[in-house]
C-alpha cells in the first residue's frame, strides 16, 4: 500500500502571529515557518504504518511556494520516501487543495491518505473532508487511533463527549488529531540523506486544476487585548461577583 501525506508550510507554532497594518492578513515577512503540527502527526503515522510492514511507500505532497520544499525535506528526513511540490505563490483555498490532491491521488493511486485535521494558520478543517467527497472515499476524521484490520482500517475518533470507532474500507481518508502519536525528531543523518531523495516540482496547470479563489477575505483583526483582572478579598465576594456581575452562576 502507498500512503499519501499532504503537508503544509505554515507560520511556526512558537511565533506570535501579527496582523498586517492594512488588515489584509497575517504578516509573514521574515517569520519562521515550519510544517503544520497536525501534518507532522500525519507523517509520523504513515512512517509507523510502514515500519509495521503495513505500507510500502510514503509520498509527501505540498502545495505552496518554492520554500515549501523545506517542509517536504523535513517529511523526507522523518522517513517519507519521495515528495511532490505543486508550486504556486497564490493563496490556495481548501477546495483548490482538495482538487489538486484528488489529481495527485488519481496519478499515484494510494491506499490511504493521511492529512492533518486542520492547518494552524487558517484553521479551516475542510481539506480532508472535501477530498473524501471528491474521491467518493470513506473518511475517518479527528483520528486518535488508526489500526489496520484485515483489508480495511479502524479509526478511533475524538468526538464531543467521548470516542467513536469506525471501520473503513480502503482506500480511505484519515485526518489526524493531536493525540494520535508523538512525532519523532528527524535524525541528523536522515536530514543529510533527505537531500538525495526524489522531489518532483509540478504546477497546478500540470494537473489541470483551476485554483482561482472562491472566497474573499474582507479583513483580518487581532483578538481584543485581555483586560487586567481584579483581586477579591473573600470567597463570599467572589461568589457575589460571579452571581451578580458576571452572571455565570
Amino acid at each position: 500500500m502507498k500512503i499519501l501525506v499532504p503537508v503544509k508550510r505554515v507560520i511556526d507554532y512558537n511565533v506570535k502571529a501579527r496582523v498586517k497594518a492594512d488588515k489584509t492578513g497575517v504578516d509573514l515577512a521574515n517569520v519562521k515557518m515550519s510544517m503544520n503540527p497536525f501534518d507532522e502527526i500525519a507523517v509520523e503515522e504513515a512512517i509507523r504504518k510502514k515500519e509495521a510492514g503495513q505500507a510500502e511507500e510514503i509520498i509527501a505532497v505540498s502545495i505552496g511556494p518554492a520554500q515549501a520544499q523545506e517542509t517536504l525535506r523535513t517529511a523526507l528526513a522523518m522517513g517519507a520516501d519521495r515528495a511532490i511540490l505543486i508550486q504556486t505563490d497564490d493563496i490556495v483555498e481548501p477546495l483548490a487543495v482538495a482538487k489538486l490532491l484528488k489529481a495527485v491521488v488519481d496519478a499515484e493511486q494510494p491506499g490511504l491518505v493521511i492529512l492533518g485535521k486542520q492547518a494552524i494558520d487558517d484553521d479551516s478543517n475542510q481539506t480532508g473532508q472535501m477530498l473524501a467527497a471528491l474521491l467518493g472515499w470513506p473518511q475517518g476524521t479527528f483520528a486518535s487511533i488508526v489500526k489496520v484490520v484485515g483489508d480495511g482500517i479502524e479509526v478511533t475518533r475524538e468526538v464531543d463527549g467521548g470516542l467513536e470507532t469506525v471501520a473503513l474500507t480502503l482506500p480511505a481518508i484519515v485526518t489526524t488529531d493531536l493525540r494520535l502519536n508523538e512525532p519523532r525528531y528527524a535524525s541528523l543523518p536522515n536530514i543529510m540523506k533527505a537531500k538525495k531523495k526524489q522531489l518532483d516540482v509540478k504546477t497546478a496547470a500540470d494537473y489541470g486544476v483551476d485554483i482561482s479563489p472562491r472566497l474573499k477575505t474582507l479583513k483580518v483583526e487581532e483578538p481584543a487585548k485581555r483586560a487586567g483582572g481584579i483581586k477579591v478579598k473573600t470567597i463570599e465576594e467572589l461568589v457575589d461577583k460571579l452571581k451578580n456581575e458576571a452572571g455565570v452562576i
Binding site: 523545506e70 525535506r73 523535513t74 533527505a194 537531500k195
Partner: peptide, 15 residues
Amino acid sequence: DQEIFNQLRDTIRRF
C-alpha cells in the same frame, strides 16, 4: 550546505 544545515540546527534547537 546551508539548507541542510539550517534544518539540522532547527532540529537541535527544537530538541
